[in-house]
Amino acid sequence: MVTPEVRFLAAEKIPTLLKRLGERYRVFAPVKVSETTVLFQEYREGVQIVLDRQTTAPAKEIIFPQTERLLSYTYRKDPEDPQKIELQVEEAPQSAPRTIIFGARPCDARGFRVFDSVFTAGPYEDPYYSSRRQQTTIVTIFCTQPQNTCFCTSVGTGPTDTEGSDLVLTPITEGYLAEAITEKGKELLQDEAFVSAQERVEEAQRAKEGIKLESELDLEGIPQRLMELFSTDFWERVSAKCISCGACTYLCPTCYCFNITDEAAGLEGERVRTWDSCMFYQYTLEASGHNPRPTKAERYRNRVGHKFSYHPINYEGMIGCCGCGRCIKSCPVSLDIRQVLREAKAYG
């Protein structure tokens, strides 16, 4: 049987679709968890799914969990000879369950492409990320209403970008036009919730064409420009209001930096990987007490530099930012990275 690649999904069918998919996959969808926050959560019947706005946190956590065990260890004392210690180390399994992220945004999908460039391209591959990534199907909803903080089109993606997604949904009256981008996406389209699209294709086309994004950034030459500004007081000035917290990095779909710590409980414990943030002093603090990035100015310089200079230089021009704007929207002091980049171009 040939699977049609374009189908219609009625909005009212979504709960039953997710329930059915839940029998074969772990299914995550944007769920209202408080009056003002929407987060990706494992779908359960009765939760309130919210598909008309950007989630508070991106889908990152599903493939790159904030806390993840790398190994467990146990020390055993030899009862015959208490001086002798036996150590057992057990590697955390790499296997990942089949997973669906339903209701991602193009910026979420783009975020994973940035992760891919670092974690799967080598020379060292991250086995935990890779196996989860392979096992995940991403169902993305196109953005018909970009927010004041959105700037995805400036960083090489856009509200109807299909890159990194397996199935894309265009919002139309009472539902969505579903288009499969990959084989994984086609597989989902076989569910009975997806019906013939008939004459809805044109409506979806019009919807896509109606999308407007106001914020446009000129990033021409910015990788070199940021390098030129490296030793100037520009960074101290633009980071003056930064409070050096990790909200921007933890809510960023492309921020992948992590910590590894041993969490001990008596003679046993775990080595865990947790999200870390380049905005924290401890991140680069050396055991000697020396810190190459001692103040928020150096740290902010590294964050902006990494995304808009180092990453594109290292990865064939790919900007390490997906333009979702969460770092602006969720910043306690509304520090606007777009403004910083504009000022960088004009500075001096």
Partner: peptide, 21 residues
């Protein structure tokens, strides 16, 4: 449950003066 330990609360707190330590 939804706390992400980003320490925005700590760093925004004017009396939280240990900050980096």
């Amino acid at each position: 449950q939804r706390c992400i330990r980003c320490y925005a609360c700590r760093n925004a707190c004017p009396l939280c003066v240990c900050q980096d330590f």
